[in-house]
Design a protein around this nucleic acid. Structure first.
Length: 316
DNA sequence: CCCTGTCAAGTCACG
DNA sequence: CGTGACTTGACAGGG
């Protein structure tokens, strides 16, 4: 717990990845459709495409030493919506198992990130119920892939309504009642306007929930702490069974308004980040527009870093 | 084929 | 109470 040793002795090592979309392999694994066009056929063909593409992306990633990946929430469109009565869990069981087998065989780290509308602490109970349904869907995907507890579902806390204290109380109350299949995978992430990393740590102290640190959100909505200062406490919220801490890394788009992600990774900034965070082991999710290109650049930069691991080493 | 309005869900500000 | 901003690509209907 807390600061971990450098290097991959003991089977731990830093992995780098990107979320959801790969621009270079010619397929899209997050295809969806409009609710009014919902049909079982449409769902099946879309999911089949998404699962095929997901496996292709994972194969691509392994050949490029990209061993961390965020699976899109659009994998099964409308999975948690009442319109969906189709038992996709059974229909796609084999495909999900196959993908899960590939993930485990190559020691790929997996995360999922439900959208902002997932609020387990909303004042409206209907929103809470729908949010839990959505989390259930995410957990089912990872369970059907037979991934262990290190595969995480990250959410923002939200649901402030001008009273963070009450918001936190509601979060704790709902969290404590969550089914274990969800709770074991759930982690909280600091966001860019409401919950700072310190807020997340406060909530973690009460619930034991791990804190996923987002560097960019911390820049926009932090309390002035440097990255290493905040990485120490957030890292120690991850138990051994949770796997290495996850960190979302991104930088400001220079041309655009505040809050916009950069188009491509800034090599110098990333090298500085690696240097500044030397005492810590964590898996890095690059939230950068050009996805796998920046991931490859980052891996190139990290390849001299003793914490980093390649696919062949992970395989051994 | 291209153009463009719209999209499951969320909050918040405003009139 | 209703509407638009937030933010984003892409779906999908109309021309």
């Amino acid at each position: 717990m807390g600061q971990r040793g450098i290097g991959y002795l003991g089977g731990r090592a830093v992995k780098i990845g990107y979320p959801c979309i790969n621009w270079s392999i010619g397929c899209k694994g997050d295809r969806t459709f409009r609710l009014r066009n919902y049909s079982e056929d449409r769902l099946i063909s879309t999911v089949r495409n998404n699962l095929d593409c997901l496996l292709k992306m994972l194969r691509f990633n392994v050949t490029h030493d990209i061993l961390f990946f965020r699976i899109t929430s659009d994998l099964i469109p409308f999975a948690s919506h009442s319109v969906c009565e189709f038992h996709w869990q059974g229909y796609f069981r084999k495909e999900l198992e196959e993908i899960g087998g590939f993930i485990q065989g190559n020691r790929i780290r997996i995360s999922m990130h439900p959208d902002q509308f997932v609020l387990i602490n909303a004042e409206d109970n209907g929103i809470v119920e729908r949010s839990i349904e959505e989390l259930q869907y995410h957990a089912e995907v990872l369970d059907l892939m037979r991934l262990d507890e290190t595969a995480k579902i990250q959410i923002h806390i939200g649901g402030v309504y001008k009273d963070k204290g009450k918001s936190m109380k509601r979060f704790i109350a709902t969290y404590e009642g969550l089914d274990e299949v969800i709770a074991r995978r759930l982690v909280i992430e600091n966001d860019d306007t409401r919950y700072t990393a310190q807020d997340c740590l406060r909530l973690s102290a009460d619930t034991g929930i791990p804190v996923l640190f987002d560097t960019f959100h911390h820049q926009l909505n932090g309390s002035g702490e440097g990255v290493p200062e905040i990485l120490a406490p957030t890292s120690s919220t991850w138990r051994d069974t949770d796997g290495l801490p996850m960190v979302d890394y991104s930088t400001q788009n220079r041309n655009n308004r505040k809050g916009r992600h950069a188009e491509s990774i800034d090599s110098e900034e990333f090298a500085e980040f690696l240097e500044a965070t030397k005492p810590f082991d964590f898996d890095i999710m690059l939230e950068i527009k050009d996805k796998e290109r920046s991931a490859s650049k980052a891996i190139e930069l990290a390849s001299r870093d003793a914490r980093f691991i390649t696919a062949s080493k992970a395989h051994a």
